[in-house]
Each structure stands twice: as C-alpha cells, then as structure tokens.
Design a protein around this nucleic acid. Structure first.
Lengths: 237, 237
DNA sequence: AGCCAATATGAGTTGCACTCATAATAACTG
DNA sequence: CAGTTATTATGAGTGCAACTCATATTGGCT
C-alpha cells in the first residue's frame, strides 16, 4: 500500500493492465492487417514487446485472443452508437442515426466483419453468439421498444425480422460500397427505412390529404355553392 | 482409341474424373462436418481413398480445394434456383419463389455460408468475388430486368441496393431461424417483398379504389349532371 | 536483506500443410 | 509382346506456427 507511485506502470496491477492493453492493441493491428491466418502469435508478441510464452499467460489460445479483439471492437461500437443516437428525437430519426452510424463504421473497419465471423467459430457449437454483439444489437431493440411505448410504432412490428433485415442489409451494402470504392451512400439507409413505414403511427394532424381527393373536394364545394344559388333562385320563384 | 470399355473407370479420362469427383465429395463432407480449421488434408485423402500427395496433384492448396467446394455449392444452388422460378409468373411471385428457395437452401446447408466467407479470403485481396456466386446472383438481376421489361417494375428500382437487402436479410434470417430451431418462416420472405412495393407498377384495371373516394366521385358526378340540367334549363330561359 | 508468490521467458514439442524423390501405371511404337 | 516414354501416384520428409514447460526474473512483504 505504498502511496508513492510517481511514474505510471508502477504497481503490479497497473503493469498488468498496461500489458493487457498493449497486447490487445498489437493483436488488433496484426489481425486486421494480416488476417487471421496471416497472423502469428510470434508477431503479436514482438509488437507487444513481450515473449511469446507470456502471450499465453494472458490468452489461452489464438482463437481466444481473436475473440477478445472482436468483442472489444463491438464494445467500442456500442459506445459510439449510444452517442450517435438522440433518444429524444422521433424514433424514425433514431433508426436513421443508428443505421447511418452502423454503415459508416462497417465501411471504415470492414476487416472486423471478417474477423467477427472467424471469432464466432467455436470448436463444438456451429455458431457461438458473442455477448458484446448482443449488447450492441440491444440498442436497436431499445429504439423499437421506445417507439412502441411512445406510440410512434405499431406493436405489431416483427422485431427480430426487422433486425435481421437491417443488419444483414447494411453488412452486404457495406461490402458492395467498399468494392465499388464508394465512401458512403445515404440512399441505402433511406431505402431501408421504408421497411418501417407500415409500422409507423402518424400523430401529426392530417394537414394535407391525397391531392386528388383535395381537388375532388374543391370541385364538390364549388358545385354545392352553385347549386345552393340555383336552388335559392329557384326557390324564390 | 480402343472402342472397348466394358466397365466404367476404364479410360484415363474417366478415372481422373471419378477421382476428381470423389475428392470433391470427400472434401465437402469433411469441411462441412469439421469446419475449415478442423479439416486436415490427410483426412480428405483418406476418405477419397488416395494418398495425401495425390490430393496436391488435383488442388494446389487447401484454400484452393475449399474454393472449389464452395463454388460447386453455389453452382448447384444456381441450378436449383433456375428450376424454382417460373419465368412466366408475375415477377413479384418469381421474387417470392427465389427468396423462399434461397432461404430454405441456406437453412438446410448453413455451414456453406461460413465456408463461403473463408473461401473468399485470398492472401492479397481483402475480398475475392467467387464467379459462381456472381452467376447465382444474376438470377435475381434477370428477374428484375424481366420485371422492368414487362413494365411490372419501375426502372427506378435501385438494383444493387435491393440485392444487398434481399441477400443480406435472408442470410441473417437463416442464422436466426437456425438458432431458434425454426425450420422455416414464410413471413420473412413476405416482409422482404414489401420492399419492392414502391417499385411495382399495377396493370390490373382499378377495380376497387378507396371506397371513400369512389362514393365521393359518384356523388360528385350525380350532382354535376343534375347541375348541368339545371343550368341547361336556366340557359334556355 | 531475504523469502515467497506471481509473472516472464524462449527452447522444445507437436500437428499439419505442403514437397519431392521414387515407384507404379498407362500409352505408344515397331 | 517387349521396350520406351509420359503420366499419375505415393508417403516419407520438411518447415512453419501454435502451444507447453522447466527455469529465470521480478515485485511485494517482513
């Protein structure tokens, strides 16, 4: 319990955390740059300035290390998404904000999508759900819940289907945009928001109805007025 | 050029093709059962009843063999999709048939999705497009083209965006359905078809319009007719 | 200072993709 | 059919990379 710690990395605790952090940083760099198969534990150790054996004190296997890297990515994404969404805006705008944020993040760090697929593979189970991804997806779910609470969305909205459509579509779109070297395309998000249209509940008083109907009504009113005049004349006879 | 070939596997050509086929079969089995990392070339060779070295006469690397397995899968899927789509049906129905076929196929052989992601990784390029997948996706494109030609779909339809939404959504949906052990869910396809609604061009003569507007119009026409008569009377005066 | 527990190390082990010298087989020729 | 060449098959051998472990080092405590 020595109160003196003039320089950082002094206590054991701090040193361990610094090491853990530098390992994570090194691993993230090498995995994203070289891909899973192109990455060697030796290279990660070298970049983290530790011996190869030490790496295994922090992470049992290469798979585990990859999983930590990927989970860390999604945790950071969750942070960013929380900041990107204005909880007081209309839910449709919140969805737009989330989708836009997600798409730009994927485009900027698309390597992570591939790494995520690799991290999901666990020897036994065919598909392992990463907890940090579940947390990330909860942001979407919460927006929808909020929308239903606020009566901005119908409670009929099929939650998990919309989730799959949104995230599936954005992932594929990000791949396409990268392939075509397009930095961003807002129309992708727009297109997706149409999906929620059937479940929107409109609260704004019907200012403008269908223009055809409007003109029809006007016609009707004109005629009624003329008719009233005629009838008045006629009636006076 | 000996015309006698009483039993199969007689000529060199036939023997090579049989070997190629048994390798592909063995590789597909092992890759899907054990995953890419769980698969050894030795095991594939054993199952194909050949020596390990022989395998390398047919496929340069494990990666290459994986790519062949995956491409073969998508080629078979293309065949199935062509059969599943009735080219004379309305395009919306064709889209439904294709989406349904795709979803069921993915659910039944979801391992192939993972293998496909692995097969796409080429040492240099971050994303390598598998030709057989492009061919498969062309079926979708052709349906849309047909729809535009037949004036059943608007030419405004953003082709690649709809493609990404459809395939991205179906892939994620398949994963979810498998995870929840649901064998199939038609509402997923239904939900997706809504996306095409804005681009549909309706050719059926407007049998029933909005009931309110219909009655309004009828009322209007009656009144106009009566008014014309009245005005005619008036004009005659 | 001196002891103990926690942490670090890198040479060594193991497993697997891939190679290569050699063998077997098929095809062709007279 | 024998002889010769070209094609295809083989499995022991090589190299690389994940992972282990006996030993060394360090930091905390009295």
């Amino acid at each position: 319990m020595s109160a003196s710690s003039p320089n950082p990395k002094n206590t054991q605790r701090e040193r361990l955390e610094a090491r853990e952090h530098s390992i994570l940083k090194a691993a993230t760099e090498v995995f994203t740059a070289m891909g899973v198969d192109g990455t060697t534990m030796a290279e990660i150790a070298r970049r983290a300035h530790i011996a190869e054996g030490t790496l295994y004190l922090y992470h049992k296997t290469k798979q585990d290390l990859l999983a930590v890297v990927v989970q860390n990515f999604w945790a950071e994404l969750t942070q960013g998404a929380i900041e990107a969404v204005e909880v007081n805006a209309p839910v449709i705008e919140q969805l737009e904000q989330l989708a836009t944020y997600h798409l730009t993040a994927l485009i900027q760090q698309f390597d992570m999508v591939g790494l995520t697929y690799r991290a999901r593979l666990r020897h036994g189970e065919p598909e392992y759900q990463l907890p940090k991804i579940r947390e990330y997806v909860r942001i979407f779910d919460q927006i929808i819940e909020r929308g239903i609470d606020r009566k901005e969305l119908s409670s009929e909205l099929p939650l998990w289907q919309c989730r799959d459509v949104l995230y599936g579509a954005l992932e594929h779109s990000a791949r396409t945009l990268l392939l075509r070297e397009i930095p961003f395309d807002a129309s992708v998000v727009e297109q997706l928001l149409v999906m929620f249209q059937p479940y929107r509940i409109d609260h704004t008083p019907k200012e403008q109805a269908d223009p055809i109907e409007t003109s029809t009504l006007r016609r009707l009113e004109n005629i009624e007025a003329q008719l009233a005049i005629l009838l008045g004349e006629k009636g006076s006879i």
